[in-house]
C-alpha cells in the first residue's frame, strides 16, 4: 500500500545551522506515528515542512504518491494536511461550529440574491460531529472562550475529521494540559486514526508516546535514526536513540 505520506532525505539549513540533515518518514493511513527526539533534534522543523511553513533545501515529500511541494500552510490545508496546535488555533468569540467551519462556511441566498452564512447547517453538522467523536463538549456552548484546553483540542480535531484530512499533525498536543485532559487527547488521536487519518504525533513524554503510537520514529541531530513498532520497544531503547548513545556505540 502506498503510504499516505512519504518524506525522503529532507535537508534544511538556517544559515550555518543544519536543522535537518536527511530526515525520512513514512506514514500510513489509519496509524499514529510518533516522532520523538531531544530538543533541537529537528522534530518541529520536520513538522513545519509538512505543514507548509518551511520549504526544504533538498529532499522530497510525497502525499499519497503525489509530489508535495508546499509554498504555504494554506496550500497544505488544501491538500488535506491539518495541524492541531496546542494554542492559537481557535477564535474565542466564535461558536464551536463557527470555528469548525471558519474559512469554509456554507452559504445560501435570500430569495436567490443576498448571500448569508447557513448557520442552521453549521449547527446541525456540528452537533452530529461532536456526537461522532463522542466529545463531552456541550454543542450549544455559545463561544469557545470557556472551553478547557482539552475541549478546545477536541474542536480542532473535529475540524480535521469533518474536512476529511489525510494527514493530521499534532505538535506537543498535551504540553499545556491537565492529566485527565491528556488522556482525552490520546483518545482523540486514536479516534482520528480510526477514521483512516494518518496522524503524526510529536511529544516528549515517552509513557504517553508508547500508549498513543502504532509506530515511533526517533530523530537525532536532524536525521531519522530509528523507526520501530511501539509494541517492540521500551523507554530505555528509545532514550538510547534519542541521546545518540546507540550511534556512538556503532561508530566505536
Amino acid at each position: 500500500m502506498t503510504p499516505v505520506l512519504r518524506v525522503s532525505d529532507l535537508r534544511k539549513s538556517f544559515g550555518p545551522v543544519e536543522a535537518l540533515r536527511g530526515a525520512d518518514l513514512e506514514l500510513h493511513a489509519g496509524e499514529v506515528l510518533a516522532v520523538v527526539g531531544d530538543n533541537g533534534a529537528g522534530k518541529s522543523t520536520l513538522i513545519k515542512h509538512i505543514a507548509g511553513v518551511y520549504q526544504p533545501d533538498s529532499g522530497e515529500m510525497l502525499l499519497a504518491g503525489e509530489k508535495l511541494a508546499l509554498r504555504s500552510p494554506r496550500e497544505a490545508r488544501a491538500r488535506g494536511i491539518e495541524t492541531v496546535y496546542q494554542d492559537l488555533a481557535l477564535a474565542d468569540d466564535l461558536s464551536i461550529g463557527a470555528n469548525i467551519f471558519l474559512g469554509r462556511e456554507p452559504v445560501r441566498r435570500f430569495l436567490g440574491l443576498l448571500p448569508y452564512v447557513d448557520d442552521r447547517t453549521i449547527r446541525r453538522e456540528t452537533a452530529a460531529l461532536l456526537q461522532r467523536i463522542r466529545s463531552v463538549i456541550p454543542a450549544e456552548a455559545r463561544t469557545v472562550a470557556r472551553l478547557s484546553g482539552g475541549q478546545r483540542q477536541a474542536v480542532a480535531i473535529a475540524r480535521a475529521i469533518y474536512w476529511q484530512a489525510k494527514v493530521v499533525l499534532m505538535d506537543e498536543p498535551t504540553a499545556a494540559l491537565a492529566v485527565m485532559e491528556r488522556e482525552r487527547v490520546i483518545e482523540h488521536a486514536r479516534e482520528l486514526a480510526s477514521h483512516g487519518v494518518g496522524v503524526i504525533y510529536i511529544g516528549h513524554n515517552l509513557t504517553e508516546i508508547l500508549k498513543v503510537a502504532d509506530r515511533i520514529a526517533v530523530m537525532f541531530r536532524g536525521r531519522t535514526v530509528h523507526v520501530t513498532a511501539a509494541g517492540d520497544t521500551t523507554q530505555e531503547t528509545l532514550i538510547k536513540y534519542m541521546t545518540g548513545y546507540s550511534e556512538t556505540e556503532k561508530a566505536a
Binding site: P73, R77, L88, A89, L90, A91, D92, L94, L102
Partner: peptide, 13 residues
Amino acid sequence: AMGSNAEATRRQG
C-alpha cells in the same frame, strides 16, 4: 474571527 484571534484566522486561510 480576526478580532478574536488574528493568527488562527490567518491559519484558516
